[in-house]
């Protein structure tokens, strides 16, 4: 499976106790870029054609704005996708994400109340599923988007099993 962090060596990945990170499959990035292109490519063409036809060549340069947005967004989506990673440790799950606003969440297996796998119509079309963990604290925001359905199900089953074994009350 092609993953985002395969190439990027984790600092200190070899040392004992350091988590083994897994990135997200490339599918999520593909879908997000596709959506971006679906919106911005027609917009660029439309803006260029209309402005070129009615306002003159100089005005058509404004069509470069959506194009710039497209290129910038393309790069940003890549960076964001690469920043997502998760690690299953012996007793807890780590999720790390974000480029500008970084966030790293640790959820102990014993605290999981509910593990949810969701897949919307678009996600299903591209063979993706997201996994969401709920604890008794509503502030816990532990979601892993864009997993392949078999991986999501494997993770769900494993987390449920580990959660049962280490279950603790409130």
């Amino acid at each position: 499976m092609e993953t985002g962090t395969e190439g990027t060596a984790d600092p200190g990945a070899g040392t004992a106790g350091e988590p083994v990170w897994t990135g997200l499959p490339r599918g999520l990035l593909r879908v997000r870029r596709l959506l971006l292109a679906l919106w911005l490519v027609p917009l660029t063409i439309l803006a260029g054609a209309l402005l070129g036809a009615f306002a003159g060549g100089a005005w058509a340069a404004f069509a470069l704005l959506p194009l710039a947005a497209l290129l910038w967004g393309w790069a940003m989506l890549g960076r964001n996708w690469r920043s997502w990673r998760y690690a299953e440790r012996a007793d807890d799950l780590l999720i790390s994400r974000g480029v500008l606003w970084r966030e790293e969440t640790i959820v102990p297996y014993g605290r999981m109340q509910l593990v949810e796998v969701t897949s919307g119509p678009l996600e299903r079309r591209f063979g993706l599923a997201s996994l969401q963990l709920h604890t008794a604290a509503a502030a816990t925001d532990a979601t892993i988007p864009g997993l392949t359905p078999p991986e999501a199900e494997r993770l769900r089953d494993r987390l449920t099993e580990l959660g049962e074994a280490r279950s603790a009350g409130l």
Partner: peptide
């Protein structure tokens, strides 16, 4: 219930970060 670390761009510039601890009473 869970532990989180967050760091915004401004905080990263100064090399600091926030640690949140979530409890069951929300």
């Amino acid at each position: 219930q869970s532990v989180r670390l967050t760091q915004g761009p401004w905080e990263r510039w100064r090399g600091v970060a926030d640690v949140h601890v979530d409890t069951g009473a929300n």
